[in-house]
């Protein structure tokens, strides 16, 4: 591969990476349960009956007009969340924002696999969700 082609490929990869929204877990699992969000792999592991709050950002700002839908609500239910009740500067160090943060609550249902589709004005993504039985 020529240096020019490698450079083009690198630039394309950088552009493609920039189109991905970032998913960040805002909460943790209670003892014995699992509630994890892997942004790089765009997958979520969750115990049945456990909720996990996930924030969607795009280039550092809240994902705009974001919605999420589950392929199987019996496995994972996704509900919109609202986390802007607290004033900035509290113990959680929330930043002031011109627009509400984009947060969704994933709720584990019966054990199994499902996909959650994220659509927003900024970018779209598919999140693979695995719901695990509690020990």
């Amino acid at each position: 591969m020529s240096p020019r082609a490698a450079l083009l490929l690198l630039a394309a990869a950088a552009l493609a990476a920039g189109c991905e929204p970032t998913l960040t877990a805002l909460t943790v699992a209670p003892p014995t349960a699992v509630a994890e969000c892997d942004d790089a792999a765009k997958d979520v592991r969750l115990s049945e009956g456990i909720a996990l709050a996930i924030e969607c950002t795009y280039q550092g700002s809240p994902c705009e007009d974001a919605t999420m839908s589950s392929s199987d609500p019996d496995v994972v239910r996704v509900m919109p969340g609202f986390v802007d009740l607290l004033a900035p500067g509290d113990a959680y160090q929330r930043y002031p924002a011109d627009v509400p943060r984009s947060v969704f609550i994933f709720v584990g249902g019966k054990p199994g696999d499902a996909t959650v589709t994220l659509t927003s004005t900024d970018a779209n993504a598919t999140v693979d969700v695995k719901v695990l039985p509690l020990p």
Binding site: T32, S47, I50, A51, M79, P80, F82, I105
Partner: peptide, 15 residues
């Protein structure tokens, strides 16, 4: 067992 209790407001918005 263990499960989450969701606190929601109008429109199934989880607070």
């Amino acid at each position: 067992g263990l499960a989450s209790m969701l606190i929601t407001t109008e429109g199934e918005l989880v607070v």
